[in-house]
Design a protein around this nucleic acid. Structure first.
Length: 424
DNA sequence: TCTGGGGTCCTAGGACCC
DNA sequence: TCTGGGGTCCTAGGACCC
């Protein structure tokens, strides 16, 4: 078999770019996008990066943003999700195999492609730009970890590289490894960076030279793979098929603190409904769920409390009514009066595929009608929009709902919010 | 006033079994 | 007086990613 060749294609400042595509008037205005509840900065356009850090709380940087004329947006996941699909569709048309790795990046496998891969990279860039208005960077190498690093270089030296870097040449690879800090390597986060530095490993090059056996002992097999990948030995294959999730979670901060049980019930029911939707969308059932609530974590003045409880279902199910019943019963067990809650979470655990689990001979049998009811339920919501059909527990406009004060339109997914263009 | 959400993988350690 | 060895399964926690 031929040596694999991977490309990592990654959108530049993706959320900020999506906002800009539909606001050409903001082409020269720096943009940041905020997390849910307008909590903190999670994306910045290139011209905003010098002024605001990733992850900074909005309320702390608001003055800075105003001073530099930076425009803030609430996150608009309907828009970003749809734009992501468009980008991926374009790329899929140009490469033999694609693994969509996240909302804004994808790995491709290019071994056996004729012609210059750098030219192919430029073509991907040009076509994605033309079809979607989104700019991507392309990194090419013999392993995923090196392709990530190549992509990093393509971004960092965008002007010199034109946004495409082919790192297959060993000389070029080693030069880059020596120039890049170990913390930039895929799989090396904050904690590991610190521990590696204590061992004298400062650059990606140092890591590639390190003794794999010792590192595996000290850290884990994941670290060993990273080292091997840096040396050009491919350990992480392309995963084209998306495996079904092994757990599904819906967790959200409230738009404002919640003290009373009835409002918490609403939130737990709403989150359970969303989680159950995801569960059915991948054709799974769950056997257990965990519901948890907690107060704010940052304000030292606030009394802190957090608790979760695991609930066992009588049989594997994706029936929103059953899941909600158990989630609410769990909530009653963990709720304590007198706290200002900021967040609730639902985790669906122990997932299995429909028809691929062994029934318990003595356990309660799942009602047969439930499955059909849920598929009609999903069909109605798919046709008329999420939430058209919902349990009475789930309010339409809850007082604890998410804050999104700077939300852009859903230009591409809502007929009543289409982009308006005026001809002069 | 105010600090995101949703995942994965790996390991250690305890419970339990024969 | 003395108290095995080897295995599995589960859970919690820690690290990472975007």
């Amino acid at each position: 078999m031929a040596e694999p060749v991977f490309a990592l294609i990654d959108c530049n400042a993706f959320y900020a770019s999506c906002e800009r595509v539909f606001r050409p008037d903001l082409a020269r205005t720096p943009i940041v996008v905020l997390s849910n509840n307008d909590g903190c900065v999670i994306a910045r356009s290139a011209d905003a990066k010098p002024f605001v850090k990733m992850g900074e709380p909005y309320f702390q940087v608001r003055a800075t943003l105003r001073r530099h004329g930076i425009r803030a947006f609430s996150s608009n996941y309907a828009l970003y999700g749809d734009m992501s699909q468009r980008v991926m569709t374009v790329i899929e048309g140009l490469v033999p195999e694609l693994e969509v790795y996240s909302i804004d990046e994808a790995f491709a496998e290019l071994s056996g492609m004729p012609g210059s891969l750098e030219a192919l990279g430029r073509r991907i860039r040009a076509e994605v730009w033309q079809c979607t208005g989104i700019l991507v960077g392309v990194g090419i190498a013999g392993t995923k970890t090196l392709a990530k690093l190549a992509n990093h270089a393509a971004k960092r030296w965008q002007r010199q590289t034109g946004g495409v870097v082919d790192l297959r040449d060993p000389g070029r690879r080693d030069k880059l490894l020596q120039a890049v800090a170990v913390g930039e390597v895929w799989g090396v986060g904050r904690k590991l960076t610190q521990q590696l530095q204590e061992l004298g490993i400062r650059t990606a090059w140092d890591l590639a030279q390190a003794d794999t056996r010792a590192l595996r002992q000290r850290f884990s097999v994941t670290m060993e793979k990273t080292v091997r990948e840096l040396r050009g030995i491919s350990c992480l294959p392309l995963d084209e098929v998306v495996a079904p999730r092994q757990e599904i979670c819906c967790s959200r901060m409230f738009g404002r603190r919640v003290r009373e049980l009835p409002a918490l019930r609403e939130a737990v029911a709403s989150y359970t409904a969303r989680a159950a939707e995801k569960l059915r969308a991948q054709g799974s059932l769950c056997r257990r769920l965990r519901v948890s609530i907690r107060t704010g974590m940052f304000n030292p003045e606030e009394a802190k409390y957090g608790q979760g409880v695991l609930c066992e279902l009588p049989y594997p199910s994706a029936d929103v009514r059953l899941l909600t019943r158990f989630a609410l019963a769990g909530l009653e067990r963990i709720y304590r009066e007198g706290f200002a809650y900021s967040k609730a979470e639902i985790h669906l655990l122990d997932l299995c595929r429909r028809g691929e689990y062994t029934d318990d001979l003595f356990a309660e049998a799942p009602p047969l009608a439930a499955e059909r009811l849920m598929s009609v339920w999903d069909a109605i919501n798919a046709r008329w929009g999420r939430g058209t059909l919902h349990l009475a527990r789930v309010p339409g406009h809850p007082q604890w709902g998410m804050r999104r004060e700077m939300l852009s339109q859903s230009y591409t997914t809502r007929i009543d919010q289409l982009w308006r263009v005026r001809a002069e």
